[in-house]
Design a protein around this nucleic acid. Sequence first.
DNA 1: CAGAATTTTGACCAGTTGGAAAAATGTTAG
DNA 2: CTAACATTTTTCCAACTGGTCAAAATTCTG
Lengths: 244, 244
Amino acid sequence: MAPSKLKSAETDAAPRRRRKSVVAVDGETERPVTRIQREKQDIILEAALEVFSLHGFRGATIDQIAERAGMSKPNLLYYFPRKDEIHRRLIGQLLKTWLAPLEEMDANGDPFPEIRSYIRRKLEMARDFPRESRLFANEMLQGAPRIIEMIEVDLKNLVDEKARVLLAWMDQGKIARTDPYHLIFSIWATTQHYADFDVQVRAVLGPGRGGEGRFEDAARYLEHLFLYGLTPRPRSIDKMSGKS
Amino acid sequence: MAPSKLKSAETDAAPRRRRKSVVAVDGETERPVTRIQREKQDIILEAALEVFSLHGFRGATIDQIAERAGMSKPNLLYYFPRKDEIHRRLIGQLLKTWLAPLEEMDANGDPFPEIRSYIRRKLEMARDFPRESRLFANEMLQGAPRIIEMIEVDLKNLVDEKARVLLAWMDQGKIARTDPYHLIFSIWATTQHYADFDVQVRAVLGPGRGGEGRFEDAARYLEHLFLYGLTPRPRSIDKMSGKS
DNA sequence: CAGAATTTTGACCAGTTGGAAAAATGTTAG
DNA sequence: CTAACATTTTTCCAACTGGTCAAAATTCTG
């Protein structure tokens, strides 16, 4: 039903010294080597995603993760000797995936199609990867203790860059002049809301409108919001250019 | 510096049987009776808000709360015999306060000033009560196990009512025709973002723009977004009517 | 298949957690 | 002042937590 995992795209060309169990010298977990290791680590990460995203780091227990992964706790610890290494791995993978949609926003494209696509992509991520979204939200709520540097460096740089793109579009009169940073924030907020506050959204919409169609409704609404705002306008002006 | 607590406005006219310790018959915690009880409970709730909002229910410990409240764990347990009763009380108080800004939105007022004020009020709450916002967000992330009924009844009813108000405004051509539920969601999302993702916001804005002014910037931006969207417009058209 | 390496298990542990009991210490009305 | 109640502290506990370890079971490789 739901796409289960974010692909890691992490093949790591270096062959490394093998034959040494999964646990590495300096406390870091090595890349999986055997087929079994790869499989089991994936199973564990999948289970951990479920549990961490629901209870946060402190609220999640290794036992819960192990149970969901269908293995004993010591067995799990054989693959990830520390709880926080599982978490670190998840978060590490996550941020890259999280930034991807924004990275795709192309300075050379048409502003409105670019922005609209960005919103769509973010909304799709909220729909297809809600647990990842919640994991991220949990980390943020707790003050992002484990990823603050990534936020301050990688994320900030990317946003700075894209803010410049937006500013350029504003200078060219292609989109309204407004604050590019808060613009980006508002796209994050509105889209991730549908993952992080899913319970609320569904409860408020009720069984009818809270069904599968809610993401399409949201997409339509957000498109309108970011394009026109709430100012009433006469009959059919052509919608956002660049169709589909 | 920061306003510390949401006022409870809970005087509870009923005199009740007194003299019976704080613990009530059926496991429920009674309303505080003596001056000391009221004070201590307030201190505890304040400490608990801090801890719960940061770590979520499972991640928070009674010891942490007790320490922050400046008392021993058993002493704290004298006032709230169960951990989850502290949480329940916090959440209970919270939801009422949380709904207030939306309740104020007046069907007889002018749409744009009403909506704009609502956004302002929500943004002020994000600024002045970030812990309350995070407590709420934490609960949502976990699937709202402890308040789902309130969400499904009280919150839903209120939103339904206000959605009708918005629809009426749309019918009268006073605001653009769009989805009233998702409109409300987007206001929640964009404003609460500044409390729940505060770390990220500050990190991305950097030391300069991430300072105290960020809420004013956000207010200005959101006003523009909800009024006009991103469609570029010619020179000064009058801003949202109905000042301050 | 044998031997080596990998994987899994069961027993265990020290620290933490939510909470109970009861004794000790205030506080206050009569 | 003192009995009755309210509050606080001390001590304790059973369940849970993250994590260790050695032995057993399994898988892989030649």
